[in-house]
Design a binder for these strands. Structure first.
Lengths: 109, 109
DNA sequence: CTTGCCGCTACTTATTTAGTAGCAACTTCA
DNA sequence: TGAAGTTGCTACTAAATAAGTAGCGGCAAG
């Protein structure tokens, strides 16, 4: 399993267009969630695992490697934490929270 | 395979918090891509399949059902097309494109 | 020197996704 | 009328990914 990166063909697109690589990376289970949990605070491997509903350590480990390769987070003495790039992604994703609330309203009606 | 919806437990979170349902839905392969392709234009089943690098029809079909259940798109005589809700999601995701370009610059350096 | 938490790895099973074939309904052009 | 093409799928099998469980070696505290 290779890490999807911009500038090279990725799962679901051979164009190498950056946004496609982003879709591929973020479209893998847990990746958005992990970034979300690391927003505002660094977390240890086991803490992160707990917050992600006890996700299996094998998957968490491969995810952490992929997200590191993608330069969205790194491991520090304080635990795993977002890079500046990772933080900037989370900022872009923030509007999603508001959208989800609106979505809830419309779906449940 | 049930469709992740806000207001109910979803894969990866039993809280029912809207954003978690969004992560679950968007974190499934092809979902973001499908919405992306339908942005600005309706597409037929087979057109959509072609644009998504020949994704398998079985998966496309289940995705279309899930996204319909989630009220993000629907089927019309012109083909599949986004609902207003789906369009509003795409607007929120637009900043991602710019981010991805920045990402490319940093990853490839 | 034991107890406990840490970051993992190894392994098996279950779930998801891919891939291929093909059918029934409809249109097109003869 | 009828043969040929297109469309929206469904059915089925195979491959890839994720879940689940066990446990190891390192380290720190008591």
């Amino acid at each position: 399993m290779t890490t999807p990166l911009p500038n090279q063909p990725v799962r679901g697109s051979d164009s190498g267009i950056p946004i496609m690589a982003a879709f591929d990376l973020l479209g893998r289970k847990w990746n958005m969630r992990i970034l979300w949990e690391l927003n505002q605070q660094a977390l240890s491997f086991r803490n992160l695992q707990q917050r992600c509903n006890g996700m299996s350590p094998s998957v968490l480990n491969t995810r952490l490697k992929q997200l590191s390769d993608a330069k969205l987070l790194n491991s520090t003495p304080q635990g795993y934490q977002l890079t500046a790039l990772g933080e900037s992604l989370m900022e872009k994703l923030n509007p999603l929270r508001e959208w989800a609330v609106e979505w809830e309203a419309q779906v449940s009606s």
